[in-house]
Amino acid sequence: MGLDLSLYNKVFENKIRLQIMSVLMANDDYDFSSLKDILDVTDGNLASNLKTLEKEGYINVEKSFVDRKPNTRYSRTTKGKRAFENHLLALENLIKQKYK
C-alpha cells in the first residue's frame, strides 16, 4: 500500500485549528470566550484561525447579543465534520504505515 495522503488536510496542520475543530466535534456549539478559555490562546490568534475555518466552510458562525454584549457561537458544518474525520483517518493511516 502506498502512502495515501489525499485525506490529510493542510488546514488542520495548524494546532489551534485542529483543536478548535475537536471542541466543535465534541459539542454542538461553543462560544468565543469559552473557546479562548479552553484553548488558552489570545483573542487575535483564535479569531484569525476561526476566520480560516469559516472561509473553508468548516464552521458556522452565529452572532447575537446577550445582555447587549456580543456573543458569537460556532458550530461544525457537515463539510467540516467530514474533513475532520478524514484528517483523523489520515493520521491513523500514517501511524499504521510507520509500524510496518
Binding site: S22, Y30, I38
Partner: peptide, 10 residues
Amino acid sequence: QIRQIMERSS
C-alpha cells in the same frame, strides 16, 4: 491531544 481537548471541552 485531540482526545483530551474533546473530553475537557464537554
